[in-house]
Amino acid sequence: RNRTTFTSYQLEELEKVFQKTHYPDVYAREQLAMRTDLTEARVQVWFQNRRAKWRK
C-alpha cells in the first residue's frame, strides 16, 4: 500500500478531533472518515501515529 497523503482539510479535521480526544471511539472515527473521505482504518492509524508523536 502506498503512503496516504492527507490534504490540509483532512489534517485540520483530524487535528480538531485530536484536540478534543486522543482516543476517539469507533463512532467518532466513522464520522470523521466520512467527513474527510478517508477509510476508518486510515483514521485509526493516523490517531495511533499522532499519539506517538504527541508522547515524544
Rank of each mutant, 00 (worst) to 15 (best):
E12W: 04
Q31Y: 07
Y23I: 02
E40L: 13
K56R: 07
R50T: 05
V17D: 03
R1Y: 08
E12V: 03
R55I: 06
F6Y: 15
E15V: 02
D37F: 13
W46C: 01
L14H: 03
F18D: 00
P24A: 02
L14V: 02
V17F: 13
Y9H: 14
E40W: 03
Y9F: 12
Q31A: 12
K20L: 10
N49F: 05
A33F: 02
Q19G: 08
N49A: 12
T36K: 02
Q44K: 09
N49G: 10
T5K: 10
Q44L: 12
N2T: 05
L11I: 07
L11F: 04
Q10P: 00
L38T: 05
K53H: 14
Y23F: 06
T39R: 03
Q44S: 13
Y27Q: 10
A52G: 08
Y9N: 07
N49M: 09
R3N: 15
Q44I: 07
H22W: 09
A52H: 04
R3V: 04
A28I: 06
F47I: 02
R51E: 04
P24V: 04
K53Y: 08
Y23T: 09
T21P: 00
Y23G: 03
W54Y: 13
E12Y: 04
V43L: 07
S8F: 08
W54A: 13
N49I: 05
T36P: 00
R50Q: 10
N2M: 13
S8V: 11
V43D: 01
Y23P: 00
F6T: 05
H22F: 03
Y9C: 09
D25T: 06
W46N: 02
R42Y: 06
Q10E: 05
A41S: 12
K53V: 13
D37I: 04
Y23H: 10
R51M: 06
Q48M: 14
E13A: 09
L14N: 02
R51C: 04
E12K: 09
F47H: 01
V26Q: 13
D25Y: 02
D25V: 03
T39Q: 05
R50N: 04
T5F: 09
K53L: 12
L14W: 00
T36A: 07
K16T: 09
D25M: 04
E30G: 05
R42D: 15
T36C: 09
